[in-house]
């Protein structure tokens, strides 16, 4: 337990220490990564610990994002209360979806969550008058302040993102090392046996789903508040797949895996679309004479390759391998 507290404390301290030394570019990136990592931490609770693979978490991210941003835009709420309202929206969505979707298992659960998320995405497009559809809308810089702090200021934004990530990380570490966390892992390993031991798996699965949805909503609302934008693209299937990819890469069922996976995938995609893909396009054209105009923008190719390679060769992810080979106590 002390080792675990020390480890998480060190990671958070490192994130604090990085703030003054990062270049402006990486500074902005890391703030974004920490917000997205909150989303991944939530996803990990459901997928990594409880063994439920959702293909529709973008609806919770979008519930938080729009729950917050629409109140700011249409009802002129302050960003503080709007953020809280966004989180509550995602929590409520988690409860409703949980009661319905948890009646199914395995592939059924994956498709039900996918369909709910698709309906949510189409709903955002349908109510285009309020949400402005794919184009989205911005939240003006002037009103993005909480208690006198200007959230569009890069340093404030960094620490706001870090505070949210720290809260998510500590909450998730506390849950998974508690009695509840052990029941969740037991459900992942063998649900029937858990039921036989006298636990009600549904209640624990509902808890994991609502926890996970709330984290996703907090990330979505924070994204709207900190980066000042809400758009329907965040509700697309792609945004349900990305947290799955981050968690798979970092290590499902490890507390620090989501952060590691998000950082690595963010920079891999960044590097790919900036350097690898245009270079590859030039190489293909020089070697074969076939112009490949789309290759430079085909960063989703990396996502596809990463998914296939991970599921084939490293289903336990990076920290999962580390835990199995070297550090058995890794939470």
């Amino acid at each position: 337990m002390t080792r675990s507290i020390l480890l998480h404390g060190l990671v958070l301290a490192a994130l604090v220490a990085l703030e003054p030394v990062l270049s402006e570019y990486h500074h902005g990136n890391l703030a974004r990564i920490m917000v997205l990592a909150v989303y991944a931490v939530g996803y990990n609770m459901l997928f990594g610990y409880t063994g439920l693979l959702s293909l529709g978490h973008a609806m919770f991210f979008a519930a938080g994002m729009y729950g917050c941003a629409l109140l700011v835009r249409l009802a002129e709420w302050g960003v503080g209360p709007a953020f809280a309202a966004g989180v509550v929206c995602a929590l409520a969505a988690g409860v409703v979806v949980g009661f319905l979707a948890l009646r199914t298992i395995g592939v059924g659960f994956m498709i039900v969550t996918l369909m709910f998320a698709e309906a949510a995405h189409l709903g955002i497009l349908y109510y285009n008058d309020y949400t402005r559809g794919d184009e989205g809308f911005t939240i003006p810089q002037a009103i993005r302040t909480v208690a006198g702090l200007d959230l569009s200021d890069t340093t404030t934004r960094y620490f706001a993102a870090l505070a949210l990530f720290a809260a998510a990380l500590i909450a998730s570490a506390a849950v998974v090392q508690s009695r509840t966390g052990r029941v969740l892992v037991a459900i992942r390993e063998n649900e029937d046996r858990v039921r036989m031991l006298g636990f009600d798996p549904f209640r624990y699965k509902l808890f994991a789903l609502v926890f996970s949805a709330t984290m996703a909503g907090a990330a979505g609302a924070a994204y709207a508040v900190l980066f000042g934008y809400a758009g329907a693209s965040f509700a697309e299937v792609q945004y349900s797949i990305l947290p799955l990819l981050w968690v798979l890469l970092g290590g499902p069922g490890t507390t620090l895996g989501p952060l590691l996976g998000t950082v690595l995938m963010f920079y891999l995609i960044d590097y790919a679309s900036g350097t690898i893909m245009p270079g590859l396009a030039a190489l293909v054209e020089a070697q074969t004479g076939i112009a490949a105009p789309g290759l430079a923008s085909a960063w989703l190719l990396m996502v596809g390759l990463a998914l296939v390679l991970l599921v084939l060769f490293a289903p336990r992810g990076l920290l999962g391998v580390v835990r199995a080979r070297m550090v058995p106590w890794l939470p």
Binding site: L244, L301, G304, L307
Partner: peptide
């Protein structure tokens, strides 16, 4: 399912 999602992106891109 995860692998065919990967295939989806690979083929599409």
């Amino acid at each position: 399912i995860v692998a065919t999602i990967g295939l989806l992106y690979i083929i599409q891109q």
